[in-house]
Simulated scan of single mutants.
Amino acid sequence: MTFGLVVRFDIRDEQAAEQFDALAAEAVAQIAAKEPGTLVYATHTVEGEPLARVFYEVYADRDAFQAHEDADHVKEFHARKNPLLVGEHRVEFLTPGPAKGLPEAW
C-alpha cells in the first residue's frame, strides 16, 4: 500500500544550509534515476525559517521505502548531512487519505 512521510531538518548555520541543499540536490538526482518505487521525493525550504528544510516523500509500498533506506546514495546522504544539523530530525509517517496528484492507491 502506498504511504508517505514528512521529515523536518534544522540546519546549524547558513554555510551548512548551502552544503545541505547541494547534498539534497545530489540525492534527489540519484533517487529519481534509481528508485522507481519512490513516487514523490520533494524538498522544501520553510518560509520564515531559513535554516529549516522539510522533505515530503511518497513510496509505492513499504518495500520501496526499505529499498530507498538501503540504497548507497541515501546512506551517503545521511552520513554527509548529519554533521550539518542541530538536534534530532523529526519524521512523521503518513496514512493515505483523499488526494489530488498522487497514485489512485493513495
Rank of each mutant, 00 (worst) to 15 (best):
M1S: 03
T2K: 00
T2R: 00
T2V: 07
G4T: 04
G4L: 07
G4R: 06
L5H: 04
V6P: 00
V7T: 06
V7F: 01
R8V: 07
F9N: 13
D10K: 14
R12A: 13
R12D: 04
D13Q: 02
E14K: 02
Q15C: 05
A16K: 05
A16N: 03
A17V: 03
Q19H: 13
F20M: 06
F20K: 01
D21I: 12
A22W: 03
A22P: 02
L23P: 00
A24E: 11
A25E: 11
A25V: 08
A25D: 08
E26T: 09
E26S: 11
A27N: 13
A27L: 10
A27R: 03
A27E: 12
V28M: 15
I31H: 12
I31Q: 12
I31M: 13
I31F: 12
A33Y: 03
A33N: 06
A33G: 08
A33D: 06
E35F: 03
P36M: 09
T38R: 02
T38K: 05
L39H: 08
L39P: 03
V40T: 12
Y41W: 09
Y41H: 09
A42K: 07
A42G: 10
A42Q: 13
A42F: 13
T43I: 11
H44I: 00
T45S: 14
T45P: 07
E47G: 08
E47R: 08
E47M: 04
G48W: 12
E49K: 12
R53V: 02
R53T: 02
V54E: 09
V54D: 02
E57L: 05
E57G: 05
V58C: 13
Y59D: 14
Y59L: 14
A60W: 08
A60C: 04
D61C: 00
R62M: 01
D63L: 15
A64N: 04
A64L: 06
F65K: 00
A67I: 08
E69K: 01
E69D: 07
A71P: 10
D72Y: 04
D72W: 02
H73C: 11
V74M: 09
K75S: 07
K75R: 13
E76T: 14
H78I: 12
H78N: 04
R80H: 12
K81M: 15
N82V: 08
N82P: 00
L84D: 07
L84R: 13
G87E: 11
R90I: 15
V91W: 15
F93R: 03
L94S: 09
T95W: 01
P96T: 05
P96A: 10
P96Q: 09
P96N: 06
P98C: 06
A99H: 15
A99N: 15
K100N: 12
G101N: 11
L102K: 11
P103V: 11
P103R: 06
E104P: 00
A105S: 14
W106K: 08
